[in-house]
Design a binder for these strands. Structure first.
Lengths: 188, 188
DNA sequence: GTTAGCATGTAAGGAGTTACATGATTTT
DNA sequence: AAAATCATGTAACTCCTTACATGCTAAC
């Protein structure tokens, strides 16, 4: 359990936790939340919804006429009790699987529902993952003399700068968490 | 042709263009060049080398005893004439397929071998792709009132800032290209 | 009346990972 | 003698995309 590619499922559960929604609307929100350059395809979303339904985490509400006149058939999905519990458990999982490029953004998006201890663990885990990456690249840039044209160097420099910036962003966030949290107040 | 996922193949051809290499060494260099957080697996690399061989772009040189004592079997790959030509053609392709997150880094890594016109086209294409992304997100952030907790807002802000930074990096590079190129002097 | 956006899906395929399988060489 | 690193590969699987297929509804 805690499969690697569970990011999409967690995102879907999280959005449905906020409010029941139909697939098309869900996709739009996921495109923003996931922040991939590209958009999520229906070929991924609908099978995912089907799987979450089969697992008992969500149910499909077929005859959902929205406010006003009856639009065409829309299938509104909402979280079950099991779904809520599963989502809550997913948020508590603050181990390595939450530090990936893919997962981290999703986990961060639901930080308002995550307890502070987990938030800090995730932020620190993410930071040390990036730090590792940083000095892997730095070391290989030193020992390898190969490919030293100006463009390669510029690319390398820019990459390192981006990661460094990401790290100091995380450091700021960690400091803020330690001194009271950003604005979050869901703990007593 | 010009398949979407050709980034790896181009990277391999480009590295082998610099110097013949065996798979293990190639992987290390690819890990730096591709700049994915994760490392490239052999399960991807070796089949890819096989495919490039089948296409006639590279040949495998089995009995390559390196300097000094005989190490264990290493299979050194090198570019054929067709491979060189194919690589050169790939670099000239400066259309949308070169503007992806995945492809752009690889294309940039070989800018020293790319003519200036193509370089500028790729940089500008990349920039306008990012600009589109920017105002898609900006627009959806405005109209959608949903999910407005402090963490979501921070994530959005940070994402936009990163893209803006990337855009101004590209703008600088474009300006430098227009006024003489970075340091590159492979055109008469 | 036609274009654009809303809405739901399926089938085939691409690109990559993980786990497995094997063994040589170098360093500690 | 053990551990790390070098070196090559395969099979099964996962996640996602592309292309297809269908039809409603609102705006111009």
């Amino acid at each position: 359990m805690a499969r690697r590619g569970a990011a999409l499922e967690v995102a879907v559960l999280g959005l449905l936790h906020d409010a029941p929604m139909h697939g098309y609307e869900l996709r739009k929100q996921l495109n923003v939340l996931l922040g991939w350059g590209r958009v999520l395809s229906y070929g991924t979303l609908y099978p995912c919804l089907k799987a979450l339904g089969a697992a008992g985490y969500i149910v499909a509400d077929e005859s959902a006429a929205p406010e006003g006149r009856s639009r065409r058939t829309r299938i509104v999905y909402r979280l079950t009790a099991e779904g809520k519990e599963h989502f809550a458990q997913s948020l508590e999982e603050s181990g390595p699987s939450a530090w990936d490029d893919e997962s981290f953004g999703v986990r961060f998006a639901f930080f308002a529902r995550t307890d502070r201890a987990s938030r800090v663990r995730i932020l620190e885990g993410r930071r040390s993952r990036l730090e590792e990456r940083l000095d892997t690249v730095r070391r290989s840039a030193q020992r390898g003399r190969e490919r030293a044209d100006a463009y390669t160097a510029e690319l390398q420099r820019h990459g390192l700068e981006s990661v460094e910036r990401e790290i100091s962003w995380l450091t700021d966030l960690i400091d803020r968490e330690r001194s009271g949290g950003i604005t979050n107040d869901d703990e007593k």
